[in-house]
Design a protein around this nucleic acid. Structure first.
Length: 689
DNA sequence: TTCATAACTTAGAAGGCTATTC
DNA sequence: GAATAGCCTTCTAAGTTATGAA
C-alpha cells in the first residue's frame, strides 16, 4: 500500500499525482487507508454536510458565529509568503457541460434550393445565423473560416460538392428561426421564468461551489465553454473557426481523498489529478489555439483575495524604491551598450506611460504589440518650440499602435531629449524598415529578469499597478473638503478616470449616448426654467409689497429709487431668460408639456413664500447634481472605469477615502466588488498606499 | 540561451437585471 | 405597467510571467 503523498512532494509542475478514477458512489472508501487523521475528520465533516453545498443567502451567511467570522478573515492571520501548496483537501462536483445540440430541421437555402443539413453542419450554420447583424457577419476572415468549416462538415455528404460558394448560401430561414426563439424567450411567462431560475439555481448549487480545506468557496466559471464560432478581437486570423467542445479532454483536479464526481451520462473525464500546487479545479484545451483553459475559484475566494493583496503589497514595495530604480534607469539611458540603452528606454516607457511588457506573438494571432514588441512604424517624432520659452525645444513621440484586444493606443507625449534621441537611434539604426522591431536587442523576459534583480518580484506589470494606484491616490486629493455627495462622487470618478486614461481602458461609445445627453440637457433646462418661474414669482410678490406704497410710480413707469430700478431690471432679465429657455426647448422639440407647465405654474402661485424659498433651494441642489451627472457622463463616454477599479487600484485607497469623506462604500463598489475586496474593508481612514 | 507552455491576471463585449421615467 | 437606461455580472479572449526542457 502506498502512503498519502504529502503536498510538498507534489509542488513541482509536471509531477502531478494521477488519481485512479472512482465515482462518488464508491468514493470515500477507496483512499481510506491513506488518509491522515486531519483528512479523516474533514471527510467526516464533508459527509455530514451532504457534500452538495447549499447556497446561503447574504443574511444566512452573516449569521455565522464570531469564531467562524474570524476564521474567514484570513487577511488578519495568513502569511503572504509564497507557498508551494494552495490547499490540503479539495472537493467539487466537476464541471457543468453545455447542453447537447438538438437539431431544429430548419433548412439552409443554397441557390434557392432547400438543403437538409446533417446535424453537425446545421449546428455550424446556426452558429453563423447567430452572428447575423453583428460586425462578424461582414468580416471576410470570419466568413471565410466559417465557410471552410461548413464545407468540411459537408465533405462526405451529397452536398459536399454542391455547396461551394458562400454567396449562394441563404441563412435567413435559420436566422428567422433564431429570432423566433429570442422572441419566445423574451415573452416567457412569470412561471416559465421561475421554472428556469429554479433549474439554474440547481446547477449553481451542484457545480458552483467547492470545499477547499473544508471551507465552502464559490467557483468562478464552472460551466465549460459551449461550442461556437471563435470570436477573436481585432483582425484575428482564426475568427470564425469552430471552437469545439471535447468532453473527454477535461481534467479534474481533486484532493487525494475526495470522491471523483460522476461524469455526465455517456462521457468520461479525460483525467483526474491531485495537484495542490495549482489553484485550478478543471482544465481542458481550446481547440483553436491549443491553449489550456481553466476553472478557477471566484474572485471573492480566499485564494484570489490573497493573490490580490500580494499584488498590491508588491506595488507598495515598488513605491518605496521607485526613486532609486528610476535613477538607475536614467543613468542607463546614456549607456554605450545598445542592449542596456534599449532596456532602459523600454523600462522608462513602461514606467512613465504604463505600457504593457509586450510579448512576441505568433502568426496565428492578431497583430497587436506592447512595449518590447513595438515596431518602427508605431512611433513618429516631432520637435516643437517650447511655448513658454521659444528658444527651447520640446521633444514629442507620437505613439500609434494596437494594444491588447486590438484597442488603439494613440498618445502624443512630450519626452526628455535623451528618450527622443534614443528612440530615434533605435528606429533609424541598421537601415531598419517600418515593420522592423524598435527594440531588436530586447524582449519582455529580459526586461523582467532585470527588474527582478532590482527588486525581488518586480516585473513590468507591477509598474502599471503601482502607477495606477499612486495616480489614483494623488488625484483623490482634489476631493472638495466640503461638498455634496454628488460632488464627492464626481471627484472620485474623475480620479478613477485619470487612471483609466493612463492605462488606456476604453469602451465603445454606446449608440444611445448622444440621445441620452440631449435628454439630460433638456431636463436640466426644464428645472432651470422652473427655478426661474419661482424666482419671478418671488420677485413679483416682493414688488407687490413694495408697490402698495409706490404703485403710482410703477404705473407711470417712473422709478422712485435706484433699488426699484435694479428690481425691475432683474425682473425683465428673468422674464427674457425664461422666454429664451422655453424657446430653446421648443427648438429642441422637447419642451415641457403645456398642461404640465401650466399646472406647475398654477401650483407655484398657490404656495406660500417660505415654501417657494425652500423649493428654490431644492431645485438648486437638483441642478447641481444633474450638472455633475452630465459632466461625469460626457467625460466618461469612451473611457471604461471598471477595469482599473477591478484590477489596478488598491481597494484600500477607496475604503480609506470613503471613511474620510463619509461616503458609503456601496456608492462606489458593487456587491461583487465588495465581496472581492472584503480583505480591504477594515483599513482606517488614514491608510495610504 | 531559446523555446514552449502552464498558470495565472487582465480585458471588453454581451446580455441580464433593476431602477427610473413616462 | 411598459419602455428605457444604465449598472452589474458573466463570458471568454488576450495578455503576462515563471519555469522546465532542449
Amino acid at each position: 500500500t502506498s502512503t498519502k503523498p504529502q503536498p510538498s512532494s507534489l509542488k513541482r509542475k509536471g509531477k502531478k499525482l494521477v488519481k485512479t478514477e472512482t465515482t462518488s458512489s464508491e468514493s470515500n472508501d477507496v483512499c481510506t487507508g491513506m488518509k491522515s487523521k486531519k483528512d479523516r475528520s474533514i471527510a467526516k465533516k464533508i459527509k455530514s454536510e451532504d457534500y452538495v453545498v447549499k447556497q446561503e443567502s447574504d443574511s444566512e451567511a452573516n449569521k455565522g458565529s464570531v469564531e467562524e467570522d474570524e476564521e474567514d478573515q484570513w487577511w488578519l492571520s495568513e502569511s503572504l509568503e509564497n507557498q508551494s501548496c494552495n490547499w490540503e483537501t479539495l472537493e467539487h462536483n466537476g464541471v457543468c457541460f453545455p447542453p447537447a445540440y438538438v437539431p431544429h430541421g430548419v433548412k439552409l437555402k443554397y441557390k434557392g434550393m432547400d438543403i437538409d443539413l446533417p446535424p453537425e453542419a446545421e449546428e455550424l450554420a446556426t452558429f453563423f445565423a447567430g452572428v447575423i447583424g453583428s460586425q462578424y457577419e461582414s468580416n471576410p476572415i470570419f466568413v471565410n473560416n466559417f465557410f471552410n468549416e461548413l464545407k468540411r462538415s459537408l465533405e462526405n455528404t451529397p452536398y459536399g460538392k454542391l455547396v461551394v460558394n458562400f454567396e449562394d448560401c441563404d441563412f435567413s430561414p435559420i436566422f428567422e428561426y433564431i429570432q423566433q426563439l429570442r422572441e419566445q424567450k423574451k415573452n416567457r411567462t412569470k412561471e416559465e421564468k421561475l421554472e428556469e431560475k429554479k433549474a439554474n439555481d440547481a446547477l449553481v448549487e451542484r457545480y458552483g461551489y467547492c470545499l477547499l480545506d473544508g471551507k465552502k468557496e464559490k467557483i468562478g466559471n464552472f460551466r465549460v465553454e459551449p461550442p461556437g464560432l471563435f470570436r477573436g478581437r481585432g483582425q484575428h486570423p482564426k475568427m470564425g473557426s469552430l471552437k469545439a467542445f471535447v468532453p473527454e479532454d477535461i481534467t479534474l483536479n481533486l484532493g487525494y481523498a475526495a470522491p471523483v464526481p460522476q461524469a455526465p451520462e455517456g462521457h468520461a473525464w479525460g483525467n483526474i489529478i491531485c495537484d495542490p500546487s495549482v489553484t485550478w479545479l478543471a482544465t481542458w484545451h481550446d481547440s483553436i489555439s491549443g491553449n489550456a483553459k481553466y476553472v478557477f475559484l471566484s474572485m471573492s475566494s480566499k485564494l484570489k483575495g490573497m493573490s490580490d493583496l500580494k499584488k498590491y503589497e508588491k506595488a507598495r514595495e515598488l513605491k518605496s524604491c521607485v526613486a532609486s530604480i528610476r535613477k538607475k534607469i536614467e543613468a542607463e539611458l546614456l549607456d554605450d551598450a545598445m542592449p542596456v540603452k534599449q532596456r532602459a528606454t523600454a523600462i522608462w516607457l513602461i514606467d512613465r506611460l504604463a505600457l504593457r511588457a509586450g510579448n512576441e506573438k505568433g502568426e496565428d494571432e492578431a497583430d497587436t504589440v506592447g512595449c518590447c514588441s513595438l515596431r518602427v512604424e508605431h512611433i513618429s517624432f516631432q520637435i516643437k518650440p517650447d511655448p513658454e520659452n521659444r528658444k527651447q525645444k520640446q521633444y514629442f513621440i507620437i505613439f500609434d499602435f494596437l494594444g491588447k484586444d486590438s484597442i488603439r493606443y494613440y498618445n502624443e507625449v512630450a519626452v526628455p531629449k535623451v528618450i527622443f534621441q534614443n528612440l530615434k537611434t533605435f528606429a533609424t539604426s541598421a537601415k531598419k524598415q517600418r515593420h522592423d522591431p524598435l527594440f531588436e536587442d530586447l524582449n519582455s523576459s529580459m526586461v523582467n529578469k532585470y527588474l527582478n534583480g532590482l527588486m525581488p518580484g518586480l516585473s513590468a506589470k507591477v509598474f502599471r499597478t503601482y502607477n495606477a494606484s499612486y495616480t489614483f491616490q494623488q488625484e483623490l486629493q482634489n476631493t472638495p473638503a466640503v461638498g455634496t455627495m454628488s460632488e464627492k462622487i464626481l471627484a472620485y470618478n474623475r480620479a478613477n478616470r485619470q487612471v483609466a486614461v493612463l492605462c488606456n481602458h476604453q469602451k465603445t461609445v454606446s449608440k444611445s449616448h448622444s440621445a441620452v445627453m440631449d435628454r439630460l440637457h433638456v431636463r436640466l433646462k426644464v428645472i432651470k426654467a422652473e427655478r426661474r418661474y419661482i424666482k419671478r414669482e418671488l420677485e413679483s410678490r416682493n414688488c407687490k409689497s413694495l408697490s402698495s406704497s409706490s404703485s403710482s410710480n410703477e404705473e407711470s413707469g417712473v422709478s422712485s429709487s435706484g433699488e426699484d430700478c435694479v428690481k425691475s431690471e432683474v425682473k425683465s432679465e428673468v422674464k427674457s431668460e425664461a422666454k429664451s429657455e422655453v424657446k430653446s426647448e421648443e427648438e429642441n422639440g422637447d419642451s415641457l408639456d403645456s398642461s404640465q407647465e401650466s399646472d406647475s405654474l398654477k401650483k407655484i402661485h398657490t404656495y406660500s413664500t417660505e415654501k417657494l424659498v425652500k423649493k428654490l433651494e431644492v431645485l438648486g441642489g437638483r441642478i447641481l447634481t444633474l450638472k455633475n451627472n452630465i459632466l461625469d457622463k460626457d467625460e466618461n463616454k469612451q473611457t471604461a472605469l471598471g477595469t482599473s477599479k477591478l484590477n489596478y487600484i488598491d481597494p484600500r485607497i477607496t475604503v480609506a477615502w470613503c471613511k474620510k469623506y463619509d461616503v458609503p462604500l456601496e456608492k462606489l463598489f458593487s456587491k461583487t466588488l465588495r465581496e472581492k475586496f472584503k480583505w480591504a474593508t477594515s483599513v482606517e481612514q488614514c491608510w495610504t498606499f
